[in-house]
Amino acid sequence: MIMSRRAALLGAAAISLCKPAMAQDASWPSQPQHVFVGFPAGSSPDLLARIVTEPLADKLGQPIVIENKPGAGGVIGVQQMLNAKDQQNTFATTINGPLTTAPRLTPNLGYDVAKDIAPVALLATSPLVLVVAADFPADDLAGFIKAAGKEPDALAYGSVGKGSGAHLTAELFSDRAGVEMLHIPFTSYAEVTTAIIGNEIDCGFMAPSAAMQYVQAGKLKILGITSEKPFAKAPGVPVMAGQAGLPDDFRAELWNAFIAPAATDPAVIKTLNTDINAILADDAVQKRMLDMGWQAAGGSPEDLQKRIAQDTKVWGAVLDRINAKQ
């Protein structure tokens, strides 16, 4: 934030020198860059954005101003990026929701993911863990599915709202495991955790970092993780895919990506992608992300494009299932 004042002054100076409609050329970046984040300062997506943009600003030789525009599950951040007058020096980092499920869940979204957004790079992913209270009768996934399968709605699970990662993952799990669970929406993981510990509800999917300390304190236990490989932040937790009758390709991950408006010069996207991949390969950056429960990712813009398309399809099918139930 120290940067912001300097950035504002530099921005003023830069703008008075250049024409606003300046064509992109080798001189990019010639002015401060703006990165919109659809979550408040201090939140996990915000911290992740700062971990990446700090070294990125050094590489670009221009300050980067983080603009927190929280609201509507991150959608407002993306909208604000697209509404900015200067579409060459404005970017955003976002979680998966605004790019995959928002078109289904948010009326008047105001943007078309395929047409308006240019993917830059996948920044990080986070698996989810299935959490139950420490005194839950079953100790493994098979026992859990058996308990859930006794009758429809035998178990109740908490999520952080309709269409949230926790909700969709639980529904994907129910579908693949052939059970029906009762959905109880909350507004934060903290509330879900309290309700599980207080035996108000039975289970929930959440980020490992949100659950681990309660596991150590003996209040919660984890029955499985939704990633393809075991996760360093959840040691000893078995991968769910292929277990207890779940298919081998069972996977559910939250992710965070760096995106640009579609009007951005392809050369700029290439530069950014190269720089971001170099940053993500750094051990110190990977460790900072891991401490927050994120696994550093990376890859080409096309990889991100594929990920968006794939998740839109998977979660779209889950949403169909949810809507059909109502």
Binding site: G71, A72, G73, V75, I76, Q79, L105, T106, P107, N108, L109, G110, G161, K162, G163, P185, F186, T187
Partner: peptide, 20 residues
């Protein structure tokens, strides 16, 4: 804003800013 229980947008009249 968004109804927590159903995810329905109530009285937002299409304004994303009113979702919360």
């Amino acid at each position: 804003g968004t109804d927590v229980n159903s995810g329905v947008q109530r009285f937002t009249f299409g304004q994303t800013e009113l979702m919360d």
